[in-house]
Structures are given as C-alpha cells and as structure tokens.
Simulated scan of single mutants.
Amino acid sequence: MIIIDGSEGEGGGQVVRNACALSLITGEPFRITKVRGKREKPGLMRQHVTAIEAVCAIDGAECEGLTVGSSEVTFRPGRVTPGEYHFAVGTAGSTGLLLQTALMPLVLADKPSRLILEGGTHNMLAPPFDFIAKAFLPIVNRMGPTVEARLVRHGFYPRGGGRIEVDITPAPLQPLECFDRGAPLDCSATALFGALPFPIAERMAKTARKKLPDWPQDAFAVRELPVDQGPGIVLLLEAAFEHVTEVVSGFGKLGVSAERIANTAAGRMAGYLASDAFAGPYLADQLLLPFALAGGGSFTTVKPSQHSLTAADIIERFTGRRCVFEVREGESNMVTVR
C-alpha cells in the first residue's frame, strides 16, 4: 500500500484526486494521512468526498474515512466499469475537479462512458468549464481518445446548480511533443455575469482592454446570464493558437474591485503571451497525468508551480514514471515524462 503525507508539497485536494485516479488505473491501494494538511480548513471537503464517491461508483472501490472533515483516508480500488454516471457535487463544489478525478480511468477503459456532473462550473480555485473544454480536452483528444464536454447550465459560487455533460470514447494514450503554439488564430475577453449590476461587468471588460492593448476592440464583450444562474461574475480571457488555446479567468469576489480582478487576470494572460511556452501554469498541471499514462512526452511551459511538482511526485509513486522539469534561463521551461 502506498502511504502519502497529505501535508507535503502543495498540500491540497489535488493529492487526493490524482491518487484516486492513479489507484484506479494501476490497481495500487493507498492511504493518505493529514489530508489537505496545508489548507486553512484541513481534511476532506464536500467536493472531495463526492469525487471519491464517484470513483468508488465507477470502480467498485472501497474507502475508509470518507466523511467531510476526515484527515485520513484508505482507498482500495476495484475494477473500472464504463457506463453512464450522474454525480451531484452539491452547492458549488467544482464539476471540473470531479471530472479531473474520473476522466483518465474512463479514458483508458474498454467501452465508452457518459458523465453528467452537477455543481459549480465557474468557481475560484478550480478550472472553469471553458478551460477544460478549450485548453485541456483538445490536447487529450490529440493523444487518441475522444472526449466531448457540453455546458448545460452555469453554476457560480456559492449557489452552484450548474451542469455539464461529458461523452468519453476511450483509446490508448499516445505520447505527444508540444513545443510550438503555432500561429495565433483568435482572442477574446468576456465578462460573464448573472444577477449582478451590469456596470460591474462593463468595468471589468474596460480594464482588461487597457491591459491588453494589442487585442482588437471587438474581442471584448459583456454577456449576461439568466438571473437564476447567478449571482456570479467571471472574466474569461482566451488566446487561441494553431496547436493550443490558453484560457485565463478572474472571478468576482466580495471586497475586491472589478478593476483589480481584471488587472490580475489580464496580467497573467499578458505574461503568457510574452513567453513562447506551449502551456500556461494550469494547463501544465493538467497535462502531467495523461502524459505519464501515455508513457512519455514533452511540453514547454512557464515557471513550474508547486501544484505541478506535487502532482509529479504522486505520479511517480504510482507509476514509477518521472516528470523532469528543466528550467532554462531566458527560455520556456521544458517538462519531460520518462
């Protein structure tokens, strides 16, 4: 059994999600102590419990300590059973993080699957649906499988109520080398909001326009959602290239001005555009697991995050495959899976 100290490295829920996915794929049981040990509220939260319940349903796995607030879990995998599954995270727990846990085991199954996930689709500290659909899944599909995701209803924090549907046609994962973005194709900045005053979204879009002066004026837009899908607001910045799309988001938060949120998000996008890296920091996090399961591959990225380094450690414990981070001064950093 693999023993993991959940307070090491990044010390968050990513350790739980990656361990569950890898356990289903490799058949290795694991125990995590000090779950989410570096968080302000350590232990399992509702969305982590739902994610583990989901993989237990998919795999017939057994898990001890599966309660909200638990600081230790012991997980014993069963056998992955593809099919149609419906999971509700509850409140605004991230549907994207739940998908992150269940996707790779189903991608490597022997038959197609369909997931219906309800909860948060656009919430802080998790990849929004737009990132999953436009940045991450196209790379997975280039590796062999076909994964199609649809956004049925938006769900913001704290209300939630969102819904996504995902169809998975499995196939063996093939290694990729992702160094070149290709030519730029399109860019957009959308202030997406519901059940909030229009001027907040307008200020957000105007601030982003000042921070990204090279983008055309018609790239900036404000979109209002039905009132029952709010309250909530997010600035979504997309830069599409031939071989990759980067999606940066900035979420509204009580006590933080629209201008500050937009400045931060646009600054992150400007930093990515100023580099020649293939993957931004969040896409790099997501690519480590499929690249490791493919048995190899390389991509360039910006400065590796603590999330990425922690994910690499968990991957090596289950698979024996190393994610090597080569920091190159004045150039994009190289990540190679061996």
Rank of each mutant, 00 (worst) to 15 (best):
N141F: 08
G60N: 10
A201R: 03
P199I: 03
L236C: 07
A277I: 00
A189P: 14
A195N: 15
T264V: 04
G250V: 06
V256D: 08
N263Q: 12
A205N: 14
L235N: 10
P170L: 04
R39N: 14
A279D: 06
R79L: 13
G96Q: 11
V73Q: 04
G162W: 03
V140I: 07
R31M: 11
Q229L: 11
I200E: 14
M334T: 04
G161Y: 07
V166N: 13
P29S: 04
I168R: 11
L108H: 08
I132S: 00
P184D: 07
P281A: 02
L106Q: 09
Q229M: 15
S257W: 09
C187V: 07
N141H: 03
E202I: 02
R76Y: 09
L236N: 12
E84C: 08
T26W: 10
G230Y: 01
E118H: 00
I3F: 01
A258R: 00
F129R: 03
T50V: 13
P82H: 05
I58Q: 13
T190S: 03
T301K: 01
L44E: 14
R209A: 12
P172M: 13
R223G: 09
S305M: 00
Q47L: 09
I315L: 10
G182E: 13
G162I: 02
G160T: 05
E224C: 11
D285W: 01
S298Y: 05
E8W: 09
V327P: 01
M204T: 15
F193D: 06
A277G: 03
I2W: 11
A21Y: 03
L185Q: 14
L273V: 08
G83N: 10
G43A: 13
G320F: 04
G296C: 13
S332K: 05
S113L: 13
A279E: 08
F241K: 12
G12L: 01
A240W: 05
V302K: 14
A201Y: 01
K38I: 02
A135D: 13
I233Q: 12
V35W: 00
F241T: 15
L288Q: 04
H122W: 06
Q14F: 06
T245F: 11
F318C: 08
R159V: 02
K206M: 11
I4A: 08
F156E: 08
M204A: 13
F30S: 08
G13T: 14
A57P: 15
G271D: 08
I3C: 01
E28Q: 15
K211D: 06
S7M: 10
A266G: 08
S305C: 03
L196T: 04
L22D: 15
E28S: 11
I168G: 12
E316Y: 05
Y282M: 00
A102R: 08
F291Q: 01
F193P: 08
E84Y: 02
E246R: 13
V147Y: 10
V227G: 15
V222C: 15
G194W: 00
L22K: 14
D186K: 05
R163L: 11
Q306I: 07
E28L: 09
F278V: 04
F198V: 10
C323T: 02
N263L: 12
C56F: 10
G13H: 10
R163W: 02
L192K: 11
P290C: 06
G65P: 00
I200G: 10
L192W: 09
V152F: 06
E246M: 10
E148Y: 02
F136K: 06
G267Q: 00
V335C: 09
G297F: 03
R268P: 07
G65E: 04
W215A: 09
D313F: 04
P128C: 07
I32Y: 02
G160F: 01
